[in-house]
Design a protein around this nucleic acid. Structure first.
Length: 670
DNA sequence: ATAGGGTTAG
């Protein structure tokens, strides 16, 4: 072998081996043959190659065979063990070393950081006899990558105020990344100013980190400007960061545009797009993109992909699709993270399958607070308040502290199940209840009929009530027909969120149920003059593993004609059976809307009719609606379930309504 | 060194 016309010597070999990476293995033989095996630098390079690329045991054998070891030999072995996840051996070597240098200590800091053990990392960092910029960077990056933004920024302050070292580009990347986590525009600004003052040269990493920081701190324009000016630094990471920047603010169109335009995609690109759709209520699109990803074949889904996909299936109530996705993951040996299991719990409970949700929960070797919260929320949606409360008290036995979401979920569960005493106990056990917990408690009081107590609690709140608080009160007032309190709540709501049509509809329905048609007209008029639009949402039915979606007045479905035909037949049957007369006030809206060529037919009714058309007689029809179930629909579902002898399970955003033989499982709802 | 994931809500 020849390099530059001369035989490679001990100086060249280490460089060549390093440059070759894994492919350096074949050089090992040459080294021995040519007699350089005895040179300590060559030996170190070969050992390091095995420590980096494996097998680590080969490195260890070379290490053990050495009669004399340099500090670098020890350091390479320690880093190697950390790389292969062997904390015990790394620790052992560190403990048995004679002389350590700054690299040794830094390796320990990096090792513990990578494992997420920031406390141990910091212990080593603090004990270091001397620190250089790499040591500081190791600690700062550790904090940044593990979400300890606060600690990272604090340490950075220490570094610049008295650390005795100058930050380099790696430092800035870590600090900027911590700032991104904090999502604090002021801090971002001061960082940018600091960069200007110090006249820091910005490399590609720093620029991309800045892009991400701008985006996460709410300055989309600056992010885009940075992206456009990246030039040769505009790699796949920058594209992905920009895509996420758009999905974060719900601009799916711009995100998709970039996604379609980017020259190369990796798994993160796909995951960003899928998660972007999933997080913005476009679950069906999320699944479409997932299918595209599978078909494209050049990028394989990973565990992050599956989390979004499974969650999307949950939102859609698409059980067949969800099971197909889980099957795909199993067949392709995609590992399941805690988030993955949590998504499964979510999916099963959103599909009405609490047995499997509980099974997954109990099968999990490691759980986190979200696992508990998700299952508790599932119980809440199914009206199983006691299971929710019990699981919350059990959390503490498992060593988990309920967080604010736990309390929201469990109070919601109490509310749906009418568990006043249990709910009060839970509320009192919260150290410092926030405004959402008050909202839940007011909802609970309202639903059990204690409206005056609910109003008094609002007056006693230590913070300003938000719309949710008054919304709960208005809803309860409607159920209990307490027009006085209802008007009070509505007045506040019209002030806080004048654009929300739901409040107008709620109050209007309240008047309607009391036959106060003049007031109904008045509210509708106010809605019109205020320019308030009625919100609409999609309804979904899963059939044969495919999703069928409907929107109010939908005529785009291929079976649309049959659906409307069935709808009219049902209406005739309902009239013949005498339902329409009894429920005249209830169904007034339907009649009006359907007179207008059925333009206003609610999406869930269309979905149910489609279900009736395509499914086996007697089969359960499952519908998922994106918004809350409408009042007249609720009544109509009861009737249809009886007329057709079918069970209809309807899930709105957060709870299940099972209609069977003219009855509904959610008695308090309407 | 820079990019992606799960839970709450009238």
């Amino acid at each position: 072998m020849r390099v530059s016309g001369i035989l490679p010597d001990a100086f060249v070999f280490p460089i060549v081996i390093k440059a070759l990476g894994t492919r350096g293995v074949w050089l090992h033989g040459h080294v021995v043959k040519m007699g350089h095996g005895g040179d300590c630098f060559v030996r170190n390079a070969v050992m390091d190659m095995y420590a980096r690329h494996g097998p680590i045991e080969f490195a260890r054998r070379l290490f053990d065979e050495m009669s004399e070891r340099m500090v670098a030999d020890w350091n390479c072995m320690i880093s190697g063990y950390w790389r292969w996840g062997d904390e015990v051996e790394a620790d052992k070597l560190f403990g048995s070393m004679g002389v350590r240098n700054v690299i040794t200590w830094t390796a320990m800091v990096t090792g513990y950081s990578k494992r997420g053990d920031l406390v141990s990392a910091r212990r080593y960092f603090d004990q270091m006899p001397e620190k250089n910029v790499v040591s500081w960077n190791a600690m700062l990056s550790g904090y940044a990558q593990n979400g300890f933004a606060e600690e990272g920024l604090e340490l950075f302050n220490e570094m610049v105020s008295g650390g005795g070292v100058q930050p380099d580009e790696t430092t800035w990347v870590a600090v900027i990344s911590s700032c991104s986590d904090r999502a604090d525009p002021k801090l971002a600004n001061s960082l940018v100013n600091m960069l200007k003052e110090k006249n820091v040269r910005l490399n590609g990493f720093v620029k991309t980190a800045l892009l991400d920081m701008y985006a996460k701190c709410g300055n989309l324009a600056a992010a885009r400007k940075t992206f456009d000016e990246l030039g040769t630094f505009r790699n796949v990471v920058a594209w992905n960061a920009m895509i996420s920047a758009y999905t974060r603010v719900g601009d799916l169109k711009s995100a998709r545009e970039l996604f379609d335009r980017m020259p190369r995609k990796n798994v993160v690109s796909w995951n960003s797009m899928i998660a972007g759709y999933a997080q913005n209520g476009e679950s069906a699109m999320a699944i479409e993109v997932f299918k595209e990803m599978i078909n494209s074949k050049d990028t394989k889904p990973d565990e992050v992909t599956m989390v979004s996909v499974i969650s999307a299936c949950g939102h859609l109530g698409a059980l067949e699709l969800g099971n197909w996705a889980l099957n795909y993951a199993r067949k392709n040996q995609i590992p399941t993270s805690i988030s993955g299991y949590n998504a499964m719990i979510f999916m099963y409970s959103k599909c009405g399958n609490m047995k499997d949700a509980e099974r997954v929960f109990h099968e999990m070797e490691r759980k986190d607070v979200i696992s508990f919260n998700t299952l508790i929320t599932g119980f809440a949606a199914h009206g199983d308040g006691l299971s929710a409360v019990n699981l919350m008290w059990k959390m503490k036995e498992y060593g988990f502290q309920p967080d604010r979401i736990t309390y929201i979920s469990v109070l919601t569960a109490c509310s749906h199940a009418g568990l006043l005493e249990e709910g009060k106990k839970v509320f009192e056990s919260i150290g410092a209840p926030d405004v959402d917990h008050y909202a839940c408690m007011i909802d609970l009081l309202g639903r059990v009929g204690k409206l005056d107590e609910a109003k008094r609690l609002i007056e006693k709140m230590p913070m300003a009530p938000h719309a949710g608080v008054y919304g709960s009160l208005l809803n309860a007032s409607r159920i209990r027909k307490r027009i006085d309190i209802g008007e009070f709540a509505a007045k506040e709501l019209f002030r806080i969120e004048p654009e929300n049509s739901g409040n107008y509809v709620l109050l209007s329905n309240m008047y309607a149920s009391m036959g106060r048609w003049n007031d109904v007209e008045r509210i509708r008029g106010e809605m019109k003059t205020g320019g308030v639009m009625k919100t609409t949402g999609w309804s979904y039915v899963e059939y044969n593993g495919k999703l069928h979606k409907f929107i109010v007045g939908d005529t785009s479905h291929e079976r649309s004609k049959d659906i409307y035909k069935l709808l009219m037949e049902l209406r005739k049957k309902m009239k013949l059976a005498g339902y329409m007369a009894d429920k005249e006030s209830v169904l007034r809206d339907v009649e009006e809307e359907e007179k207008e060529e059925m333009v206003g037919t609610h999406s869930e009714k269309l979905a149910v009719c489609f279900g009736l058309l395509v499914s086996e007689p007697g089969a359960v029809i499952r519908v998922v609606k994106n918004l809350r179930v409408c009042w007249d629909c609720h009544e109509a579902m009861k009737i249809i379930s009886k007329l057709e002898g079918r069970e209809i399970i309807l899930r709105d955003n957060n709870r299940f309504h099972s209609f069977h033989n003219g009855l509904c499982s959610c008695k308090d709802y309407w």
